[in-house]
């Protein structure tokens, strides 16, 4: 548990640096460090599937972000707002955080999962019957692609949707010139 705390602490430090540093590239590298630490944390928490996925996704995130920022003016010009606004924001967020933590007091403590508390929870069924019902031994895969396959279809669609969106946003010319358009399009139409 102490190890987990230390890793989390490192992640928070990384997050603060990533948010506050003036150089965009260092910020991206810090994000990569946080993602890598998160991957290790997942490994400790008994989630090797997540550790692998987090790791490869992290690499891809870095590649995309670096590709987007490299050769562009990356220095952060206006880092922050004026001091008063910033102070107010920080205080507000601190209050929200304190409130949230105090409300989490009644939340089941870490380490007592749903499996320990509720005999009726679906997770019990997944672990007990997962292999018999779906034929796979990795229960996470069984949930992902059988019990909750509908979510996974949605997830693949989200990815496709974002890529379609990126293609749409990055197309070379978004609007047709008026003269290429069809009838009913004369005048100064379309020219913005």
């Amino acid at each position: 548990m102490a190890l987990l705390g230390i890793l989390l602490f490192l992640m928070i430090i990384g997050a603060v640096i990533a948010v506050e540093t003036r150089n965009l590239l260092s910020s991206i590298v810090c994000l990569g460090a946080i993602g890598f630490l998160l991957s290790i944390v997942f490994l400790f928490l008994g989630a090797p599937d997540l550790a692998i996925t987090q790791l490869v996704v992290e690499i891809l995130c870095l590649v995309i972000l670096i590709r987007a920022t490299i050769h562009r003016r990356v220095e952060t010009v206006a880092g922050n707002r004026e001091f008063v606004g910033l102070a107010v924001t920080v205080v507000m967020l601190a209050i929200v955080l304190m409130l949230a933590i105090s409300m989490m007091a009644g939340f089941p403590s870490l380490g007592t999962s749903v499996l320990d508390r509720m005999a009726q929870a679906p997770s019990h069924f997944y672990l007990l019957q997962g292999k018999a019902q779906t034929g796979v031994t990795n229960i996470v895969t069984a949930i992902l692609l059988d019990f909750r396959a509908y979510d996974t279809l949605g997830e693949a669609t989200v990815l496709f949707c974002a890529v379609m969106g990126a293609l749409a946003v990055l197309r070379r010319s978004a609007r047709r010139r008026p003269e290429e358009g069809d009838a009913g399009d004369e005048g100064e139409g379309g020219a913005e």
Binding site: P48, D49, I52, G135, T137, N138, L145
Partner: peptide
């Protein structure tokens, strides 16, 4: 081999 060991379509796809 995502169904018997960690990994699966997403991780493999990203790789």
């Amino acid at each position: 081999y995502g169904h018997v060991s960690p990994g699966g379509g997403f991780a493999g796809g990203v790789v």
